[in-house]
Design a protein around this nucleic acid. Structure first.
Length: 153
DNA sequence: GCCAACGTTGGC
DNA sequence: GCCAACGTTGGC
């Protein structure tokens, strides 16, 4: 099993929104970055654990945990002209963008702040804290996961 | 809301 | 295939 970190803007979709989903599953769509797409398409696997990270908000940081319930498959919003994620250059035969489905696992009692993550010496290699940190889907090593999970508790 | 860092686009 | 212009991300 592998570990990941997914970013979301809580004003649009938060850990609470995920927790409140009655069907307990949520398509993680709208990712329009090639590096992130490659992870979703090729590497994110069933049962992998995911940190849910809140960005562009008051409390920036890791808010909880989700789990992958369906591995990568084409993001259908790219084919919908009504969607803001519509991509006219993509095709059904050769989809450009992918998504996975996740379900809620837990919400931390506090958001683990980005500033605190940056201050952890063992987390210096995580893309979140490197080179601008703009990647929206990123791998987390098992060691990093344990450190962050413990710190969030 | 500012702005730095980064990714994408398109002319040549 | 270079690279300037432009758009987006995201912390502060």
């Amino acid at each position: 099993m592998a570990y990941w970190l997914f970013k979301t803007e809580p004003d649009a979709f938060s850990i609470d929104d995920l927790a409140n989903r009655v069907e307990q599953t949520e398509p993680w769509d709208g990712v329009r970055n090639y590096q992130a797409r490659n992870f979703l398409r090729d590497s994110v696997a069933l049962s992998d654990k995911v940190f849910i990270y809140h960005s562009s908000c008051k409390e920036v940081g890791i808010a909880g945990v989700a789990q992958v319930v369906k591995a990568g498959y084409p993001d259908t919003t790219q084919f919908d002209p009504e969607s803001k994620y519509y991509d006219p250059k993509s095709s059904q035969d050769n989809p450009r963008w992918f998504r996975v489905d996740v379900k809620f696992v837990e919400k931390f009692t506090r958001v683990l702040p980005l500033a605190e993550i940056k201050a952890m010496p063992s987390i210096s290699e995580l893309p979140l804290v490197k080179k601008g940190g703009r990647l929206s889907i990123m791998p987390v090593s098992e060691g990093e996961w344990q450190q962050l999970y413990t710190a969030a508790k």
